[in-house]
Each structure stands twice: as structure tokens, then as C-alpha cells.
Write a protein that binds this DNA or RNA. Structure first.
Lengths: 235, 235
DNA sequence: CGCATCCTTGAGTTCGCTCAATTAACGTGG
DNA sequence: CCACGTTAATTGAGCGAACTCAAGGATGCG
């Protein structure tokens, strides 16, 4: 399952009822008696940059709740090129498709050190049968994924490379406006925006010259959000 | 609700238990006693080209099951341009977002004469509480939407206009390889592929000259699928 | 120190956009 | 029945953006 054994550290068996980010995760609404239904251990994992949660086409055994970090969902085209279709952050769920008995649609790769809970399919299905509360949570995750997919299409796949890049920075900075934005290389950047990596590099360089962003360290950017906003709209 | 009263004909109150396409629709798995729970009428509507099911931002009152026809989901960008993010055909559901208490994400516009069942939110929620069978169906719809969204991004928003157009034809012809493909104008075509309408027109013209497609009547195309396949891959 | 990887930058070409003019199709009213 | 107006589609010309191919720096690790 885990191709990069080196990069996957099993932290232990999760105790959901005392989860620190309980209100964010899939099982947040469950009660103690609900957890009694779980007889399969839920592993908690820490994964390093580059580790693979699962690969497209694998028969899905588990869903993954992202507790912290950043994960990319990659889709490969017949011609070999790849496209990043979504980013997953704290609270998101990867691998929902296993709930409808499909193999994984994407390859899920860790971009920044990630802590995740692996939820065996059987656990979610069992709980889903018993407790209506989980349904609402599940639908919210489906919605979030779908919403992000649509946003990705309209915001990051439409308009000039300048505008796309500006919108990406704004999106990544959105929930922590004062924190620097962390990226993971020009190649990935291109794959997110649907442009070549040279174009990504050139556009970043241009942004730096214009003072829209500054690269504090490799792939660590501080952004002038209002200036980026202007670029996202006017070009 | 219906901006185009002219184009919306109320066919009557649906009787789900004798639905002709029951195995395709959302309520397909329900039993007679389930339907007893419904005390709100489900309207069946016939809508003409150009009619609007709902508009982005509206507070969602209902979901819509597409019984036949073709509907586009359109998203408007801040700068005024619009992008078609998905097409809905027989069996698909529009407006799932109302189930998580969100306003409609898109504007849903009829491209080809469409028959649809309007499912008031309260009905779906009520049934969803009572019968687990509906959950599976609902998740399948979420999955279908998400899957299509991802496909749309990788197949119709990546690569040259030639390749995108070829892939669109293949996608539309997929479930009826011998039927002609129906489109709805170059403007919409551009909005699906993320290119200008002039480019859409030019590319169609090029395909016609090359014998890849033939336009039997305005917006009615017969396709050479294997030739299109080659274009989709090699360019 | 040397190799590998990632990033940058250049030059040339192609592709798609914009603006604009022309043609085609269709429905209305004279 | 034809002239007209309206809307959609086509086509051209010029421009700008992004791609490709390729070379040259930077950085880090063994």
C-alpha cells in the first residue's frame, strides 16, 4: 500500500473521541457509542514530502483524513503529462471514491509533511449505516471536493498565466493571510496552472521583480495580497 | 423561480413508483413505503432550449433529476466571462449543493429540450433520514459530478484546442457511438473548451475539412471516432 | 570536489486572442 | 414573396502569450 515505507511513520492507533481537531474531521459529530462500533484500528500516519498515500487505479482500501500538511491529487493523461486537480489541507478527505466502490481516481502525493488518519473503508461504511450524523459530514466532504474542483477549473485554468498564478497565491493565502505561502517547486506549479514549468518560472520571476511576492526561502513566499488581487482581476 | 415561464411546461405530478427510467434516477432504489413519506408533490417539467432551471446564488429550494435532454452548468467569473463546468444528461442530478445548505453554485441552462423532476429539498432530506438506500444513490451522484469535474479539467482544459475538441466529441459520442453528436453553438463550445469562440469555429472548420466530422445540420455532427481518437492523443 | 537536481533565462516558433469585416440563416413585416 | 433586420458563423490580419528546445547558473549532497 505504501510505496515509500521510508517516508511513512505509523504514529499509533487513533483515539477519535479525544481528537485534537475533532470539529474539523470526518468523525467529528460522532458520539462515544458510535465509536464502540469500530473494531478495526484506525492508523495515524506521518508522511514526508514525496510520499504516496495511494496511486490511481489502486483498489481502494481506505479513506484518509488530512490532519495537517498538504497533499496533491494528480491525474495522469494518456500522453504522459500530469495535472494536479486538487490540493488537500487540514480537514479534507482523500479517497472518497472508495465509498462508491471505485478504484482511486488520482495519485495522492504529500507536498508538505502530513499527518493523516487512515480510515478503512469498512469502518466508514459501518458507521455510515448506523449513524445519520456521519452522512451530513460525508456530504459536506463531497461538496467541498466538488466545489474545489469547480473553482480549480474556473480560477486556475482560465485566463493568462499571470492571472492564474495570482489567483493561486490568493487561494493559498486565504485562510492565513499573514503566514507565508508554501509551494513545492516550479514543476508542480505548472501542473496546477496548466502551463509549462518554464512559464511558471518566468511568471514567478516577473512577480518578484514587480514586488508582488518575495521568496524568503526556496518555495516560501510572502505576498502582497491586494496587489495580487488587482492582477487576478485586471490581468 | 423559473425565469422563463414560457419555456417551462409543467407536465404534472410525478409518480415515482411507476417511473419509466427508474433504475437511472435518484429514487430508483426506493420502495412503496418509502414513497409514502413524501407529502410534497414532485413536479415534472419540460423545458425548452435556453430555459434556466436555477441561477447561481439563488437559495436552493430543489434538486433536479434530468430525465432526458441536456443541461449546462455555467459559472461566471468576476470579469464577466463565463465557463461551462459540466454537462448533465439523463440520470444526472443538478443542485446537489442544496443538500449541504448552500446556494446554487452554478446557473443551469437547458441546451436541448429537457424533461426533469423537481425534487424539493425537504423531500430528499426526509427520505434521506429514513432510508439508507437513498444514501448510496446520493453518494453515487456526488461521485459522478466530481468525476466529471476532474475529467473536464484534465481532458477539456489541457492541451491544444484541437485535442480538446477531439476529446469533447469523443466524450459526447461515448454512450451512443452511432448517433450524431448534438452541440449548441460555437459560443458554448468555446466556453466548454476554455477557448475563444473564433478558435472554436476555426477548429471545427478544420475538422470538417479533414473529414473528422461532418455537420449534417447546424450543430449536428457525425464523427469519425477512430480518427478523433488519434487527434486526441497525438495532437 | 563533483555530480545531480532544480531553477533561470534566451531565442525562435506556434498557437490562440482580438478586432474587424464578411457571409449565412432565419423570422418578421411590408 | 421579397426586403430587411437580427443573430450566428466564418474568415482574415496582426499581435501577444506560451510552448519548445537549449544552454547556463545555483544549490545541495555524497
Amino acid at each position: 500500500m505504501h510505496r515509500n515505507g521510508i517516508d511513512a511513520a505509523r504514529l499509533g492507533t487513533a483515539r477519535c473521541s479525544s481528537c485534537a481537531i475533532r470539529d474539523l474531521v470526518l468523525f467529528g459529530d460522532l458520539h462515544d457509542q458510535d465509536f464502540d462500533l469500530i473494531h478495526i484500528p484506525i492508523d495515524e500516519l506521518r508522511l514526508q514530502h514525496g510520499a504516496t498515500l495511494y496511486s490511481a487505479g489502486d483498489e481502494g482500501g481506505s479513506l484518509y483524513t488530512i490532519r495537517s500538511g498538504l497533499v496533491k491529487l494528480v491525474q495522469f493523461l494518456p500522453d504522459g503529462t500530469q495535472r494536479i486537480v486538487r490540493l488537500l489541507r487540514q480537514g479534507a478527505v482523500a479517497g472518497l471514491e472508495v465509498l462508491v466502490d471505485k478504484p482511486y481516481e488520482h495519485t495522492a502525493v504529500v507536498l508538505q509533511e502530513t499527518e493523516t488518519c487512515r480510515l478503512p473503508r469498512a469502518v466508514v461504511e459501518r458507521l455510515s449505516k448506523e449513524t445519520p450524523r456521519l452522512h451530513a459530514r460525508l456530504m459536506e466532504r463531497w461538496y467541498q471536493s466538488l466545489h474545489q474542483a469547480d473553482e480549480w477549473l474556473t480560477e486556475l485554468s482560465t485566463g493568462s498565466a499571470r492571472r492564474r498564478l495570482a489567483r493561486l497565491f490568493l487561494k493559498l493565502a486565504a485562510d492565513a493571510p499573514n503566514e507565508p505561502v508554501l509551494l513545492s517547486g516550479r514543476e508542480d506549479l505548472g501542473a496546477m496552472l496548466g502551463v509549462g514549468m518554464e512559464t511558471a518560472s518566468r511568471t514567478i520571476a516577473e512577480f518578484k521583480r514587480a514586488g508582488l511576492v518575495a521568496e524568503r526561502a526556496p518555495n516560501v513566499f510572502v505576498c502582497d495580497l491586494s496587489a495580487l488581487e488587482a492582477v487576478a482581476l485586471d490581468g
